[in-house]
Simulated assay, not measured.
Amino acid sequence: MMRATFTFTLSTVLLFFSALGEGSSASSRILPSVTEFFEVLQDNLTEVTWEHAVNSQAALKEALNSSDIMMIEADIVLGYLEGNSTFQLPVMAHPPSNTSDLSFEDFLNQVIQNKAHGIKLDFKSLEAFNASCTILQSRRENMTFPVWLNADILDGPVNSSLIGEPVDATKFLQLAVTHLPNATLSLGWKTRYGTDYNITDGSYSEANVEEMIKTISNVSLPITYPMRAGLVANSLSAIEKLLNESANGTTLTVWSSAGDSVDNETLSDVIKKIGVSRVYVDVPDELWGRLDLKSSPSSGIKIGAVAFGTLLAAFLFAKFF
């Protein structure tokens, strides 16, 4: 769920005042980046707010009606709409489920109509992505918001080859470049970690990093690397190598499953060393509440809600009276 906060950066205040005087400046560009679309972020990607597993009509309606949520994450499988087990199509569901009351096409149409949120589309198989590409391509001109195409394209920690095959990297990348150029690619590793496997320790290795760098060497689309929080905390040198050998503007997306073992102090230090201008933090509220990112030099000057209200009142008085 989205994390609540009552603090504002100084840049947030200034941009808010500017918007009052000049009107909305929301991007109308096709497939803008997150920072282009949400200008208030400035250089702090950790301030992006998320909603997870938006895989039903009810969850999508709630997410779209929330002005506090910036990015909507949803899962796509090749499956069936509830009440129709004869016709297979891309639907919003997380394995092992393959049924839903929400098709991918309807999900995308509703997001396009809303226009206020970015989306991270997590494709659970190459077949699901392939079946979704025509839908994505046909609506590309209407996507004036961030669109991330996510897949686990490589084996990763901890011996993840034991739990199945990743999405075929070459074919996934070819389809993405062909059907939705300029989208952001969210390219990750399968992980065998957490309560499902009773594994509480592990890290991304140099071998994991080198394989990813080789895999994306000819890719020109923007990239973010989704990496699991409990493993990120033990992987600073590998992550630095990954980002140093990736294109300028490449980012990291730290994510976590509920119940994962995470050293919050070490994770906080790793994120601050990488820099909040390069790291999205998409974790459960419980873990977010334990992180300390305030001392990061790019996090900005924090202004409490009361102080913000005082500044706003003073501005409105000066403007209208």
Rank of each mutant, 00 (worst) to 15 (best):
K124V: 03
N84M: 04
P166E: 08
D106K: 02
V158R: 04
D269H: 13
S103F: 01
P181K: 10
L175K: 01
K273M: 06
Q88R: 14
T251E: 08
L312Y: 13
F38T: 02
Y197F: 15
S28W: 03
D292Q: 15
S100R: 00
L175S: 00
K319A: 14
F172A: 01
S299F: 08
P166L: 08
W50Q: 00
G21K: 14
V276K: 02
P166F: 05
W255S: 01
L180A: 01
I69H: 02
L154I: 08
L312S: 07
R140W: 14
Q137R: 13
T49V: 09
M212T: 13
N98E: 09
E240A: 04
N248S: 10
A4G: 08
V40M: 12
K190W: 05
V91C: 00
N218H: 08
Y80V: 03
M1P: 02
V147Y: 02
I303D: 15
L311E: 09
L89G: 00
L185S: 05
S27F: 13
N159L: 13
T191S: 15
P96R: 10
I213W: 04
T191Y: 06
V270W: 01
T46G: 13
N109M: 12
K302S: 11
T49P: 01
D101T: 04
L102R: 00
N142M: 11
G164S: 12
S205K: 05
S295L: 12
K115C: 10
